[in-house]
Simulated assay, not measured.
Amino acid sequence: MLVGDRAEHGGCTGHPDDYVLRSGRTLNADGGRIADARHHTAAFLDQAAQEHGLPVPAQTRDLTLLVVSELVTNARKYAPGPVRIELRISARTVEVAVSDTHTAVPAARPADPRRIGQHGLEIVKAVTEEFTVEQEPGGKRITARIPLIQEQRAGDAGTAPS
């Protein structure tokens, strides 16, 4: 459950999909809300690692901050009202949800390497394992799920355990 701008411990029962930590924050309408969202997210991930022992790989951290930046930037660009960011973390994933007051459902544009800008949604969809858009009264909620533990791919450096 979310409580204002504070994190709340989720009472994890040990199931990998149970949320260990949740946090929510409403961002001001000024230009600083993107930086505020990134700082809030970094502190959230630090808390998950330090207080709950969840390993947050550097790649997951970077991708989560990228997703937050892109979603909050789009909300700031298209929605006139406040933006709400909610973060959740389990043993498997980091979930980022951004709610805004714009009712239009965003759509990724067709790939065009000559296009300058407007690639944010393409990027978010490419780096997340799940992406959903839900319409809500007076706006929408975009949720992106980033895997917490990156699996080693065939051909990557390193050896598999014997």
Rank of each mutant, 00 (worst) to 15 (best):
A126P: 02
Q118A: 15
H102Q: 13
K140T: 09
A91Y: 01
A108R: 10
G155S: 14
D112F: 09
F131I: 02
G139L: 03
A35C: 01
T128M: 01
A42E: 03
G32Q: 03
G53E: 12
C12F: 11
L63W: 08
S90W: 01
E136L: 15
A43P: 00
I149S: 11
P55R: 09
P137N: 14
D112E: 09
H102I: 04
I142S: 04
G158L: 04
H52W: 06
G155H: 13
H119F: 10
D36F: 05
E122F: 05
R145N: 06
A49E: 15
G32Y: 02
H52T: 11
A49Q: 15
T26R: 13
T101M: 00
G158C: 05
K77C: 04
A48L: 09
D112W: 11
A37G: 07
V98T: 03
L54P: 03
A91L: 08
V72W: 02
T26G: 11
I89N: 08
A97K: 00
L21A: 06
P110G: 05
Q50G: 10
T26P: 03
V68F: 04
A104V: 12
A154H: 13
M1P: 11
P57S: 12
G32H: 03
S162T: 13
P82M: 00
H39I: 14
G117H: 04
A91T: 05
I116N: 12
Y19F: 08
R88C: 05
